[in-house]
């Protein structure tokens, strides 16, 4: 059985376990809510994980162009970037997939996987982590931009008044010069 066939066959089980692991990065009292509350508007975090993790898993199995899943990584990392996670914890949810797949293979002697295939899966997960880290950094930069831009909004009218006063003074100077 090739690695691809194996992952395809066990996709549902891998997804369930991965989802559980990601949800377990939150306090245990909240995991039930994230997992079981189905309405996407009442539970945006759980719904996002339910929607995006299978897309990432698909990309891993089918060796798609990883750029196509950048949006799915963004959806998850954007949330984790404003939660009480360190940078490593915010992007580390992708590494949990390695652990889940290893566990899925562990002790199952009937399964033999080509080591190159396994390394290629690990490489792909690693690349996703790098993408996640770039996205995480861009989220943090965005937050700093937002912080600085909020001052501009507060002084909007003052800035416009100053602009108008400057225009008038320029016009006055021109008239005097003439």
């Amino acid at each position: 059985m090739s690695m691809k066939e194996l992952l395809q066959e066990r996709k549902d089980s891998i997804f369930e376990k991965w989802l559980d692991r990601v949800i377990m990065t939150y306090p245990s009292e909240s995991s039930n809510f994230f997992k079981n509350k189905k309405n996407r508007f009442d539970n945006p975090i759980g719904s996002t994980l339910n929607k995006e993790l299978p897309i990432l898993l698909d990309a891993l199995i089918n060796l798609n162009d990883l750029d196509e899943v950048s949006n799915s990584i963004d959806e998850i990392v954007r949330i984790r970037a404003v939660q009480e996670f360190s940078a490593a914890q915010a992007v580390g949810f992708l590494l949990l997939l390695k652990k889940v797949i290893r566990e899925e293979l562990d002790g199952k002697t009937e399964i033999s996987v080509n080591v190159d295939d396994w390394w290629s899966v690990e490489d792909k997960i690693d690349r996703m982590v790098f993408m996640a880290f770039d996205i995480y950094m861009s989220c943090k930069e965005k937050i700093f931009e937002i912080r600085s831009r909020s001052f501009e909004r507060q002084t909007y009218v003052l800035d416009k008044m100053a602009e108008r006063a400057a225009e008038r003074s320029d016009k006055g100077e021109e008239m005097n010069a003439n």
């Binding site: 809510f33 009442d42 539970n43 975090i45 939660q83």
Partner: peptide, 17 residues
Amino acid sequence: CADKCHFFIGSGDPKNM
């Protein structure tokens, strides 16, 4: 009320329930 607070929904911090 537990899962109705936007801070809980957005953070998962149980003390925001």
